[in-house]
């Protein structure tokens, strides 16, 4: 493959990825019949939505998606994976607080009271799954940052990271479907499809690997 061609494919991949993981959720948000609120609230909502879809995107910015990513240097891919991960994991970790942040500027219930109510509503499956997903995400983030300090071989870490991701994304997707303010049918199908494919890709590499099918 020629260099120019590769470059074009790379650019093409980046555009497609941006459309799928950033454009589509924004499109569904824009087209959906949701009540519009203050711009701060809408910006925070969109940020959280995009953060989640980029989290799904992480499955495609990994070795499991090698086929599509030929033409990209794996090290660059991993770099992207890392940066996107750090930024948007932080957003998602902040999201329970971002949710109640606008209350600080208005006169509804106080942010801290709202937050306490949220995390103590344990009769809601969505909230419980959210808390579990939050913990998993926290572990995912921390184990990535402190990977070198963990006494784990890179291979083991990768499996650990992958499996943790699968569990996280499954739980988080259910949480999003149950509680998401903007989860209409389009958004649900989108999230389910992407997380399905992502999980499938990752599982496939494991299965192929364990059956000795890796090239």
């Amino acid at each position: 493959m020629g260099v120019i061609m590769e470059k074009r494919i790379r650019r093409y991949n980046i555009i497609v990825a941006s459309i799928v993981f950033i454009g589509l959720p924004i499109l569904f948000w824009a087209l959906g019949d949701f009540p519009r609120r203050s711009s701060l609230k809408e910006i925070l909502s969109v940020l959280t939505l995009v953060a989640f879809s980029l989290m799904l995107g992480q499955f495609f910015l990994a070795r499991s998606n090698k086929k599509v990513l030929t033409g990209h240097k794996m090290s660059t891919i991993i770099k992207y994976h890392k940066y996107i991960g750090y930024i948007f994991v932080s957003v998602l970790l902040l999201h329970p607080f971002l949710l109640v942040l606008p209350r600080y500027f208005e006169s509804g219930v106080e942010p801290t009271d709202a937050f306490i109510t949220i995390i103590t509503t344990t009769n809601s499956i969505g909230v419980v799954l959210g808390i579990i997903a939050y913990c998993l995400l926290l572990i995912l983030g921390l184990t990535s940052i402190f990977r070198n300090q963990l006494k784990m071989s890179y291979k083991t870490w990768r499996v650990f990271h992958g499996i943790l991701s699968i569990v996280f994304i499954a739980i988080a997707t259910i949480h999003v479907i149950d509680l998401g303010r903007h989860t209409n049918t389009a958004m649900i199908s989108y999230f389910v499809t992407l997380s399905g494919i992502g999980i499938f890709l990752l599982l496939r590499t494991y299965i192929l690997k364990s059956s000795g099918g890796t090239k």
Binding site: P35, R37, K41, L99, V100, P102, R103, S107, G108, V109, D113, A114, F115, T117, I118, L179, R181
Partner: peptide, 11 residues
Amino acid sequence: CRMYCPVDAIS
């Protein structure tokens, strides 16, 4: 109801 809702879900 809107002011008391912890997640500001009501419009």
